[in-house]
């Protein structure tokens, strides 16, 4: 555990807390993509299956449970409690365009390189982990699509996106660190992490030039 990994995790934690609090306090999930939230829930469920197969540390298990819990809470708030405020007319990204390629890629390019056999738990967990890494890298697209469609985002939503985007960027530095000091690298995670971070670049630029200077995030017409 190095400082970049820890700040990355804390940034991720902050993002999901900001999101739940935003919805809870404003009693509204306007401006938030339910489709991105469904994809994130799928990411957590498929990646953290190893809670049952592989104990790493109390910290690791705790964070995984918090991510799954917060993700479920967000879905509950969006699709049940504050359903009336959900922006479904703008949340029109077709998630099958992400799910189908990501599933195929997860089956083809993973760490096992052996044919899928029914009943092989380790292999299934590994393939699902790979699927989750690929899916996470693009899961924000429906949200970015929604922001571009409405042309604006509430400041609190911008903070959420900033924290969520920074998390993988900090992980990238963590991976450089681990490569130099531990000789550890995971090519699948690195490539997906780069893709994930690059997708946020346009947003990072808007955040720095507008939100930090106290203006609302509004896209140029």
């Amino acid at each position: 555990m190095n400082i970049f990994r820890l700040t990355g995790d804390l940034s991720h934690l902050l993002a999901i807390i900001i999101l739940v609090l935003k919805i809870w306090k404003t009693r509204s999930c306007a401006g938030i993509s339910g489709k991105s939230q469904i994809l994130f829930a799928l990411v957590y469920f498929t990646r953290y299956l190893d809670l049952f197969t592989n104990y790493i540390s109390l910290y690791n298990s705790f964070m995984k449970i918090v991510f799954i819990g917060a993700s479920l809470a967000t879905l509950y708030l969006m699709y049940m409690k504050f359903k009336a405020t959900y922006d479904r007319n703008h949340d029109t990204f077709r998630i099958e365009f992400l799910l189908i390629p990501v599933t195929l890629l997860g089956l083809l390019v993973n760490h096992e390189f052996t044919p899928l056999e029914i009943g092989d738990t380790v292999l299934v967990v590994q393939v699902l982990w790979t699927f989750s890494i690929y899916l996470e890298s693009v899961a924000i697209l429906p949200q970015l699509f929604l922001v571009s469609k409405t042309g604006e985002a509430e400041t609190i939503t911008s903070h959420y996106l900033m924290a969520l985007g920074s998390y993988r960027a900090l992980y990238l530095i963590n991976w450089i660190w681990r490569y130099y000091f531990e000789g550890f690298y995971d090519l699948i995670a690195i490539v997906a992490g780069i893709v994930q971070t690059v997708l946020y670049c346009d947003f990072f630029y808007l955040y720095i030039t507008r939100v930090i200077r106290g203006r609302a995030l509004r896209l140029p017409a």
Partner: peptide, 10 residues
């Protein structure tokens, strides 16, 4: 199959 990849990251 025994995986040699332990995912300690989140």
């Amino acid at each position: 199959t025994k995986s040699d990849v332990d995912h300690d990251e989140l």
